[in-house]
Computed example of a mutant assay.
Amino acid sequence: MIERGESVTLFYFIRHGKTEINAEGRFNGGTVDSPLVPEGIEATKKIAQYLKDVSFDLALSSPQLRAQTTAKIILKEHDRGPKLTIVEDLREMRLGDWDGEKISEITKQYPEDIRDYRTRPDLFDSKKFHSESYAEVIRRSTQVIKEITKQYPEGNILVVSHGILLMALLNTLKGMSLAEIRQGGIVDNSSLTIMASEGSKVTFHTWGETF
């Protein structure tokens, strides 16, 4: 387990467990939700076991059911753990007209837009589909991390959120440009990324690890 030094905030970022919508190959954005499938529950329980000895000072979750369920499974292993705090700005990217739709069908209808969505976030025309832009997701999520780092300069922070948001947020914190943030893909469901924040300096100890 990572040892937290003085004036260092350790963030434990977790992507929610696999859901019914994930399993059905549909867009699982900020305006749709579904329960975790058994596979997602079991994978999350493995993370919970791995993190059971971490003393969390704060636990944050997206307001969406899949993230809250994931967070509660993890916190169940902490008898004296913090109460879960719901943070609206950790909600998944709102995908507008695409939310809940079959990814394969949207790919057939809008091949160029899907290409930009997947490979060039800076070129993705979010307004065309009533979606949030990547820049908007980055703006709201990075603000959460900045505020928490100030409030807990020596804390252990659990953050449970979503694939696109975590990809955009973490790659931005790593120093990538908007055009680059989708390089390397999205972390898996029920995965753990650990980041140490010391002022303006961040260091990643774990990236998208599954158990």
Rank of each mutant, 00 (worst) to 15 (best):
A168Y: 10
D122H: 14
F124M: 09
E147S: 14
R118Q: 13
Y117G: 03
E105T: 14
V137P: 03
E180M: 06
I157H: 04
D99C: 10
G184H: 09
D188M: 11
Y134C: 07
A168S: 15
I186N: 06
L169F: 06
I164Y: 00
L158I: 10
L166A: 03
S131G: 09
V159I: 13
H162K: 02
G96D: 08
E112V: 12
W98C: 12
L170H: 08
G184P: 11
I164E: 08
I114K: 13
H130D: 14
L165Y: 01
S177F: 02
T119P: 00
V144R: 05
F129V: 13
N171V: 09
S126Y: 14
R94A: 07
K146W: 02
L165S: 04
Q109G: 02
L158N: 04
K102G: 01
F124Q: 09
E154G: 04
A179P: 00
S133A: 08
D97N: 14
R140M: 06
I181T: 08
I186S: 03
S191H: 07
N189E: 01
G100N: 06
G155Y: 09
L90W: 02
G163P: 06
K127W: 05
I106G: 05
L169N: 10
K174P: 01
A135D: 10
S104F: 09
